[in-house]
Design a protein around this nucleic acid. Sequence first.
RNA 1: GCGCCGGUGCCCGAGCGGACCAAGGGAACGGCCUGCAAAGCCGUAAAGCCGCGGGUUCAAAUCCCGCCCGGCGCUCCA
Length: 465
Amino acid sequence: MISLYDTVTAEVRPLALREPGKVSLYACGPTVYDHPHLGHARSALTYDLLRRYLEWRGLDVRHVANITDIDDNIINRARDEDRTEGEVAVEWEAVYVDAMARLDVLDPHDRPRATEWVTEMVDFVGRIMDAGAAYTTPTGVYLRVRDVDGYGDLVHRDLDDLRASAGARVEVDEAKEDPLDFALWKAAKPDEPSWPSPWGPGRPGWHIECVAMSLGILGDGFDIHGGGNDLVFPHHTNERAEALAVGRPFARHWVHNAMLNIEGTKMSKSLGNYRTVVEMLDEHPLNGRAFRLLVLQTHYRKTMEVNPELMASARAAIQRLDALARRASAAGIAVQTGAAAADPRADGGAVEAFRAAMDDDLGTPQALAVVFDTLHRANTALDRGSTDAQALAATVFELAGALGVAVDAGGRGADEDGAIEDLVARRQAARDARDWGTADALRDELSALGVVVEDTPAGPVWHRK
RNA sequence: GCGCCGGUGCCCGAGCGGACCAAGGGAACGGCCUGCAAAGCCGUAAAGCCGCGGGUUCAAAUCCCGCCCGGCGCUCCA
């Protein structure tokens, strides 16, 4: 049985699916107007992991991740660069999608764009108006928060409490009936993109796109809604209120991942202390996998720290995985990662421990401990020439694959590989002739090319540093 | 101010009432293996006891109370 922490009930509880065997997952995607940073990557990785694990457990998952391609930030950026909002959004969406691919984040089944759902949003706002839970002002259409029962359930605060701190950071709009009321539809301002509506031209308000798209694609009472915990209020709280205002059951389960800190404080656009995903990825070929490992090493609900030292240690761990893959394949054991179906050769005890850890609110740190523990056992078995080696190594690859961590048995195929193979062969010939001087010189040559040679009982194997 | 989440070894990070397991990763040190390496294996480094002070209990890193410190949220930030 799979359990997950639910923000509404504030406890880890069994995942109660709308339909047995099927999971509908809506994860909040980015607003595309700039480079995605490491925090976006953590978030995407969290839901990619959830999706992969549910699938590994045999569930049929429908994963939706939106792209918000119209909002203040995009408008501002377009204005600054003297081009259209659409151009800005298209550019940054492409950067985002590409960066996620490099992180081995699986493409969601649907990646809806807000601007393609405006009709549905207008329709939704209309229904909220019909229900009497919204009103218009000169600046737009507002949801009357006190008409929504349990408005603050996600943040665990009641209306008075929320009101007391409303305006703590931003001044309130006098035209609203209540400071907590929020915009469903924003009346058009000059020079801003707008769409027609019964309340005049304007654009979508508080993430009404997420409601329209999640309910539109996944249907009422879909299973899981996820996002960064900075979205709990007001973003998700308002989204939820929009659905509740018209009596439509919303997400059954709310999952929120914690933030990512750099030097102890939240990495964010506004603080300017962020590092972009592309930058991190370009720094080292192993970084994509290393960052995923780093994310997995911290539980998703705990703030994680990132710095160069931690990236280096994660890379070292990835290299241990790859080293096992090289040893295994040199020993004639097939390396298959990311196998969807359980590998029949896998070690039962380890798989069971892994599953128990993951079933309990995605216990990736412990799950990873199982993987590395098994890796150690596999190496020992390999040293002893034990027949257990095959099962243990297969288990490591299978479980790493379930977490989306790719394992690389070595570099073959590229153009210059022929030359490398040649050097490796010449070195081996020199070794056979006990000409250590020549052998070492050749090894230095390879090293200069960024290639490491390892001598195994089955002959030399090499890989890139 | 209000709400939420944390404070565990050199670093990261599990554990959330009971077994000598305070996991796992990284770093360090010694040894084995190796022509030498790399990879791997074996072992070690006193975690003076898990932020501080009380309490509950036969038993607490794990529960309760207070305090200190850090992080996040309180209108458009994953």
